[in-house]
Simulated scan of single mutants.
Amino acid sequence: MKAFYSDRFVLPLPAGHRFPMQKYYLLRERVLAELPEVKLDEAPVAADSELARVHAADYIERVATGALDAREQREIGFPWSPEMVERARRSVGATIAACHAARQGGFAVNLAGGTHHSYASRGAGFCVFNDAAVAARALQAEALRRGERTPRIAIVDLDVHQGNGTAAIFQDDPSVFTLSLHGTSNYPFSKEISDLDVALPDGCGDDAYSEALSGALSTMFERFEPAMLIYLAGADPHVDDRLGRLALSVDGLARRDSLVFSAAAGRALPVAITMAGGYGRDIDVTVDIHLQTIQLAAVAFGARRDSSTPDTLRSAKFI
């Protein structure tokens, strides 16, 4: 199974900044040490032409040249720097690469990504470009070039915050299904309309969350037949997350991941996974949760490889 990293391109953040940038490096080190079956590759840079399938050309230019105004930069939450631009491009490139790798092998991972608050013409909430949206459009553009029908892609967003930018980008687009389970009283406080939103109360625990997710997945598959899943596996529903407000345990988050992977395996769907949010009071617990997601994906990947040939791992809906 392949995983793509971009943590060598780290933003210089002010002292005391609340974004846990170090978690990406720590996660890569854990994968390297503990998951020898996972092949690590450096994330490619997403080109302007790839970003422009989703993002406004003037926004891409203003990000690249540091011409965002103070309000726009504040909304993103990071100070501008060349490193910010490099990391944002590689975070998108990693999800595109993970989608390609998942199509070949069943599962693949971006060790960052999940930048779901970014809209077509503005960033927000630590998100510059929307990696899942750009990756979905990349897959569809490549299918069109090959003369194939447009693949239908489901974006399953289990970060604790609603995927508002993703929902807005794909509103009224029948080729992409957006599913978001999120805290009802959490950021963003003005929500967009996903294809399926499940808003959860503060303090929601393991059993209630699993029940809600099982129902949401069943509803999604009743309404939509995807060729692929892009899965945002946020660590921030954890009970000890500083920005979370839900109450899932580490075991409850494992149940969550297993529900998604089982649903995909049962339908022979490739899955590209991104890490999304995670702001635990103890950064090691956040890294543990992200690593657990990758471990479970590696197990699911191994089971699928044992029972399938590479050709059968490609969804017929892509052909």
Rank of each mutant, 00 (worst) to 15 (best):
L35D: 06
I76W: 03
T166V: 14
A70P: 01
F78H: 04
G165D: 05
C204Q: 04
H117A: 01
L32F: 13
A227L: 10
H182D: 08
V176S: 13
R223D: 07
S262A: 13
A167S: 15
P151L: 15
A120W: 03
D282M: 06
V198W: 14
G165Q: 09
G266A: 14
G106T: 02
H161G: 14
G244K: 11
V128K: 11
I155G: 12
R314N: 13
E75F: 01
R90N: 09
I76Q: 04
A138V: 04
L26F: 11
F177R: 02
G234S: 03
K23E: 11
A268M: 09
G113K: 05
V250M: 03
A227W: 10
T312M: 11
A199L: 03
A124C: 12
L246C: 08
V109H: 12
D251M: 05
A168G: 04
S91P: 02
A112W: 07
G123V: 02
A94N: 07
K39N: 06
S91V: 07
V250T: 10
W80P: 01
R71K: 13
G66I: 07
Q295Y: 08
A298I: 02
V63W: 15
R87T: 03
I60L: 14
V128P: 06
S118K: 00
E42P: 04
G244M: 09
M21H: 04
L269G: 11
A133T: 08
A57D: 00
S180V: 06
L158S: 00
E75V: 01
D251Q: 13
M275K: 07
R145L: 13
M275W: 02
P174N: 03
P270F: 04
E29Q: 15
K191V: 11
N130F: 10
D58K: 05
A97P: 09
V10K: 06
H117V: 01
Q104D: 10
F78A: 09
G215N: 08
T312V: 10
L27Y: 15
V92T: 13
P14A: 14
L111W: 05
E72Q: 15
G105F: 12
C127P: 03
A227K: 12
A154C: 13
M228P: 08
Q171P: 00
S185G: 10
Y279L: 06
K191G: 10
K39M: 14
V260P: 01
S307M: 05
E61L: 03
V54K: 08
R304Y: 09
F78K: 11
A70C: 00
D236M: 11
A57Y: 02
V285Q: 10
D157K: 10
